[in-house]
């Protein structure tokens, strides 16, 4: 079993306040591993525990992104690969997906790629889907539970989290899965894992290593640009206290108002 977890090193949006310029935070602020990707790493580790094999963590980003990869190694992943090249800078999700798909292909035989449902910064939830499309394999998104996985028969059955309930899908392997936080509880890294991760040397693959034409991945190929990043406007709400002589009169007044607002 070869599982690959996609992780992203993202700006810590908890640090985003009205006092900070959003674009500046995105570019220069403190960074963390994308929280949803920790669930992806955990699910890969659980698959390895149940079926044996190897877990690889893969990330695209500047050299600093090795911190996210080291987090994956500290949790227990066997190896980590960084995809990093100035040529990737300013790329959109499709450019990122092209580089990640090329890296996955370079890694050799694999059974499953797992990513978090989206990244904390862009929140597009597109990259994993685009990776699946570029690799020509099925995509199972918003997965809350892997019901069954059979690496010999190359099949998988999952529960997808939908707004109104859960959807059960079966697919063939290999495939790309994106997971929601209901799927597991990510483990803490062990001290042994931390020591191993701190010492690990992580290869950085460039566009040339992946035989990618720089014109297809970076800012030049990007269909989107970030004009501005800001906090959502503060919620404006007015509080109204209902008065009345008796609890019954107050309840009746409340019901009238709720009906007038078409809430009930």
């Amino acid at each position: 079993m070869n599982a690959i977890a996609l992780v992203k090193h993202v700006p810590d949006t908890a640090q985003l306040s009205s006092a900070l310029d959003g674009l500046k935070l995105m570019a220069e602020g403190p960074r963390i591993i994308n929280p949803w990707d920790e669930y992806a790493v955990e699910e890969c580790l659980k698959l390895r525990e149940a079926h044996g094999g190897q877990v690889t963590v893969l990330s695209l980003g500047p050299a600093q992104a090795t911190e996210a990869l080291k987090q994956g190694l500290a949790m227990g992943a066997d190896q980590a690969v960084l995809v990093s090249d100035p040529a990737f800078e300013g790329g959109d999700t499709l450019g990122t997906a092209r580089a990640l798909a090329a890296a996955i292909t370079k890694l050799g035989t694999w059974d499953i790629v797992i990513a978090g449902r989206s990244a904390l910064d862009g929140d597009t939830a597109q990259t994993a889907i685009q990776v699946a499309a570029l690799l020509g394999v099925p995509q199972l998104t918003y997965v809350a539970h892997i019901r069954e996985i059979n690496f010999e028969a190359q099949t998988i059955s999952v529960e997808r989290m939908l707004e109104g309930g859960r959807e059960v899908l079966t697919s063939r392997l290999p495939c790309v899965v994106s997971v929601v936080k209901e799927i597991n509880e990510p483990r803490y890294p062990s001290f042994m894992g931390i020591r191993k991760a701190a010492k690990a040397s992580i290869p950085a693959w460039t566009a040339a290593d992946l035989n990618l034409d720089p014109a297809t991945v970076g800012a030049a190929a990007s269909g989107v640009s970030w004009a501005e990043v800001s906090l959502p406007p503060a919620r404006e709400g007015a509080c109204q206290i209902i008065t009345g002589d008796t609890p019954e009169a107050m309840a009746a007044a409340l019901v009238d108002k709720l009906m007038a607002e078409k809430i009930i």
Binding site: E67, K70, A74, Y188, P189, I194, A198
Partner: peptide
């Protein structure tokens, strides 16, 4: 802080 320290910090804060 080195990489080890940062990972310890995150682990303890999470806990």
């Amino acid at each position: 802080l080195n990489d080890e320290h940062k990972m310890v910090q995150k682990m303890v804060r999470d806990f």
